[in-house]
């Protein structure tokens, strides 16, 4: 990385250079927001690119910090940008080697909420993806155990979707003691 910086005054970050070189077709957008590189990937190639980010010896984004999602259904500006995909699945990665972070976003359309699970790359993704499934309803294909993690097992709906009412649909008044295994 240091060599790259010496060659050019303000070089393009290595990760963007390499992504443009190897996975240009997967890149929907690239940006830098408050010092963090943000790349938006096509869902079809997302797993391959994430695997590349992790395994490439120069990048080595070996640490998956977080997996979450954003419901953009009330953010017209965001919706327009990525073909009206309602959800944006967000991966935060960190490279111990380069001591740098990257935020990877993947648009997910409401009519196809499936996205490949990254538990095969980072085992720590297991509970993070369960939480994202629980809160947003994103289905992670290939996840070993995609159950709810925060809400009770018999809960219906995904409460962080924007159309879910803040005070719920009567769950807090009507929940059943007997149905839950204590």
């Amino acid at each position: 990385m240091n060599e790259e910086k010496e060659v050019e005054e303000q070089p393009k970050p290595l990760i963007l250079q390499k992504l443009e070189e190897h996975h240009a077709d997967a890149l929907l957008s690239q940006d830098e927001i408050r010092g963090t590189i943000v790349v938006v990937l096509r869902k079809e190639q997302a797993y391959a690119v994430l695997e590349y980010l992790k395994t490439d010896p120069e990048l080595a984004y070996t640490f998956l910090v977080d997996v979450t999602a954003v419901d953009n259904s009330q953010m017209e500006s965001e919706l327009m940008q990525f073909d009206y995909a309602r959800f944006m699945v967000v991966y935060q990665l960190y490279s111990y080697q380069g001591q740098c972070r990257v935020r990877v976003k993947v648009p997910v359309h409401e009519n196809d909420l499936n996205i490949p699970s990254v538990t095969g790359l980072w085992r720590g993704a297991n509970w993070l993806e369960r939480e994202t499934y629980d809160m947003f309803g994103i289905n992670f294909d290939g996840h070993p155990d995609l159950r709810r993690i925060l809400m009770p097992d018999d809960f219906e709906g995904h409460p962080l979707q924007k159309d879910y009412p803040l005070r719920g649909r009567g769950e807090r008044e009507s929940f059943n003691f007997d149905k839950q295994n204590v």
């Binding site: 409460p159 803040l166 005070r167 807090r172």
Partner: peptide, 8 residues
Amino acid sequence: FDTYTLIQ
């Protein structure tokens, strides 16, 4: 916390 999940 007047929310969907909290006992009032």
